[in-house]
Every structure is written in C-alpha cells, then in structure tokens.
Design a binder for these strands. Structure first.
Lengths: 252, 252
DNA sequence: AAGTGGTCTAGACCACTGG
DNA sequence: CAGTGGTCTAGACCACTTA
C-alpha cells in the first residue's frame, strides 16, 4: 500500500500515527489489553493496522508520553494505565524558581553551624532525626527593603560547602552541590502552611509577633531517595504571595 | 554509509541522535546560531554530520522537548533559548489534584447565585471587574469532620451548569465544563497567601475569628486566554498543609 | 515556485530479554 | 536462542511558509 489518501473512517484528516494512537488508547481504555498485560508487538501492530513500523513507533511514543504504556527492549510494551495522567504541570527552570522570588531576592546567610537534627525539627521537616547537617540561617530579600523571608537550610554534612563559600553562592546552594559534588536533586517535596510568627521570626522580618505567616518547608532528594538538604522558610503574610502557573500538557 | 560503528571521538557508546543533540546543544549554548536565529535545515544537518534525516529529526526532537528550539513547517528551526528550561515539574492528574485533597474531600455547595464581579473581588482574584458569573459557595471536607476549606467559585455565566447539576458534580466543575461545554482549561494561575480568617470564614470552618488561614486563589483560562472560572478558598492553618512534589525531568 | 519541516515506507543491524 | 524494542538508512510525497 503506497498510502493513497488513507481510508480510516472518520478522522481522515489526521496523520496515521495519531489515528493509531487514538485507536490504541480506546482499546486500552476498554481493557482490551488490560493494565499489566502486554500490547501486541510492534511487528504485529504493523500487520494489524497495515502501517510501517515507524508509524507504529510514533503512535506508541505518544502513548508512552501520556503514561499509558512503558516499553522495554526485549520484553515488550506493557500497559500501565487506562487514562493519561499528568494533564497539568508546573514547569520551572530550577528549584529556586519554585517560589518565584524576584530575581535579586537572594539569600543572605547570617549564621552557619554544624548541627545534629533533633527530633522536633526533624519531624516538622519530615525526615528521620539524627543526621549531621550544616545549618545555614539567613534572610531573603532585596537590599534596602524589608526582607521577604527568613530561611533555615540544613545541608547534609558530607555535601556541605566550605563556610567561606556560602556567601558567594548567593542562595544557589542546591545548584552548587549538583555541579561541585556531582549529586543532582531528583525530587523536591514542598509543604506550604499558614501559621503565626514566632518572636524571633517577627523580629527578623520586621513584623509584630503573632502576625500571620506563610511557611514553606522543602526536602531535596537525590536519585536514590537520600536527603540532600532541607529548608524551612517563613514569609510575612502581608507582603508575600506565592504564585504559580500550571499548564495543560499537550494531548493528542 | 552503512553505519560502521560510528567514530565520534568521545561518546562512542551513545546513539548518534543523542550525540548529535548534545553537539547542537553545545553549539547553541555557544551562540553558534544565537537565540532568534534559525538552525541549519534538516537536510543541511544531514550532510554536515553525515547522518540520515531520521537521526537528525530524533536529535531535534530532543532539543525541542528541552525547549531550546521551536520548529515550524516551511519556516525552519528557530533557536529560542540557550539552556534547557523546565528542569523540574509538578505533574498532576487534573486541576483538582492541585491541592491534593483527600480523595473524598469533595466540595459541598451551599449557595449559588448569579453575580457581577465587583471591583474589590475582581482585583483580589486578579481579573477585570464587571463580568457576569455564577457564584457557588460551599465547604470542602469529609462528612462528619470539621471542614478543611470554604470555597467560592465564580463560573463564567455562559459556561455555568444548571443549578440542580451542581451538587452531583461533586466539585469537578472544571472537568464538567470541559466535557459538556467543550472548553478545556489550558492554564491555571494559583496564588497562595497567608492571612487571618474573617468572622464568616471562621464560623464556617469552626475556628476562632482571626485564626491563621491559608488562602488560595485560582484563575482558570482556556486556550485563548479567556477566563473560564475563578476560585477563592480559605483553609484553617492548624489543620491544612498544602503538599507538592516536584520531579526533575529527564535530561538527555 | 522553491524550500521547509511533517509524515510515511521498506528495509537493516543491534542490544537486550526471556525461556 | 528467537523475539523484542532501539537505532539507523535511503528513499518518497505532502502541507506549509516565504518570497
């Protein structure tokens, strides 16, 4: 068949690989190959739908991107879901963009110390107590204006930078660890909650004690699930808003 | 050339298209084709690097996924960035997953009304005042326990569902609009801030007035940037935490 | 009208998985 | 070891952009 204006029923306008992807998507949604089972092989799909292998692979690529299948060389194509996940996503350049601070609202470290994470702090940060960490405390904001956050960062001791380097890193500690230590952050968990400021926090931020605060806590993990660093930030409720944009991902 | 164990200097183990993608990435990073300029055509790249068009396209696909280039049929391949963006992303199944409510913590509507968005409310929600909206007010939580949020939703009047449908939609209003009205949400902006509860909110949530609250405001837009709906939620600071996970995206 | 990227075919060899 | 998906080639026609 030399592709003579393919006759596919309805979607005659769509490319073949898109039509094929939609067809397979419907089959999967109808449990034709149920979750946990293998899809027919590429070769079989070529024969069944009378298309080239390239077209089949293009269609399967769409299904894989949609999270419906996983493909393993030598083993086959496994159905792992009946509906496309990840309809929306927030995309960021680096983990500091997470809070979308103004570009020059960098962290100014004020104190550093080696500490063992005691249990209260560990629980509120969501990790096991007892590890050895370098604790860096500082404020974030543009010079000459009231700060927008006080931050404590706990860096795993064996990854911690020399103290004299901290200042010039300008808050990009995670990036420094990735490039210098060769340990990249693979996952970040973030918790956001509201509460009242402690006296110490209020003083550092120039607010009244008990003022409302937005508190964010983060855990940075490497590929193997080991903690790289922890952070705990407090933002004044009256002059800080955390804004984020989620985009619908392309669907086919 | 019949592919005789390609000689590429170092990365001899990597596939050609990955090696090519990395090569082009370095060139772009060095402003070889600067941002705003066109990359050589696929045909030219085939000749320059002595690979097939398929291999070139596979490499360019990686660059496009990394956000370095955009490709336009007939026009060429435009360099739009020198570094891969979107190193981290938050992936969600649907917009309701945004707050990762417990599965059965659905919205229970209590009042609905058609309203014109007055200017104070419009400003705090971040849109132009004056539109006609259906306002749905309700609480969110699992039955038999104190609610975890009071929510106001403003649905653009011409998209609003019949009042009697609201209850059975179980809070999935955005999904209902997408399937029934054919208008999908393409973008969601969310603001998160901390503040004190108003008396009315405190009563609905079973808290004391002035208690700290986590407030989230969302704007739902369609593909053309038109507002679909707005929402305003207040969560008790002492029993609600917004948790999110960001994953590093695959890099090539 | 010439040139671009988008789709598609029909082959081929390879690395890997599984029995 | 046979069969899978991963990579790659050398062609072809098409839809679209630009001039």
């Amino acid at each position: 068949m030399t592709h003579p204006d393919h006759e596919k029923g309805e979607d005659s306008a769509a490319p073949r690989y898109i039509w094929l992807a939609e067809t397979l998507k419907k089959r999967i949604a109808a449990n034709d190959p149920p979750v946990g089972q293998l899809l027919p092989t590429e070769h079989a799909l070529c024969e069944t739908y009378d298309v080239s292998r390239h077209t089949v692979r293009e269609a399967l690529r769409l299904l894989a991107e949609a999270g419906l299948i996983v493909r393993r060389r030598g083993a086959g194509t496994l159905v792992i879901s009946t509906e496309s996940k990840a309809a929306f996503s927030q995309r960021l350049g680096n983990v500091d963009d997470l809070m979308q601070y103004a570009r020059d609202a960098r962290l100014t470290p004020e104190r550093t110390a080696m500490v063992a994470l005691e249990s209260t702090m560990a629980r509120s940060l969501g990790v096991a107590p007892g590890g050895e960490y370098m604790k860096v405390s500082g404020v974030r904001g543009v010079p000459g204006q009231p700060p927008i956050a006080v931050t404590d960062i706990y860096i795993r001791a064996d990854l911690a930078p020399p103290v004299e380097k901290i200042v010039e890193m300008n808050g990009l500690i995670i990036e420094w660890i990735a490039t210098t230590r060769g340990i990249a952050t693979a996952r970040v968990d973030q918790s956001i909650l509201a509460g009242a400021m402690t006296e110490r926090e209020a003083e550092a931020l120039g607010c009244e004690p008990g003022a409302s605060a937005l508190r964010t806590r983060r855990r940075y993990y490497d590929q193997g699930g080991r903690v790289i660093a922890l952070s705990d930030s407090v933002h004044p409720g009256d002059r800080f808003v955390y804004e984020m944009t989620l985009l619908r991902e392309a669907e086919f």
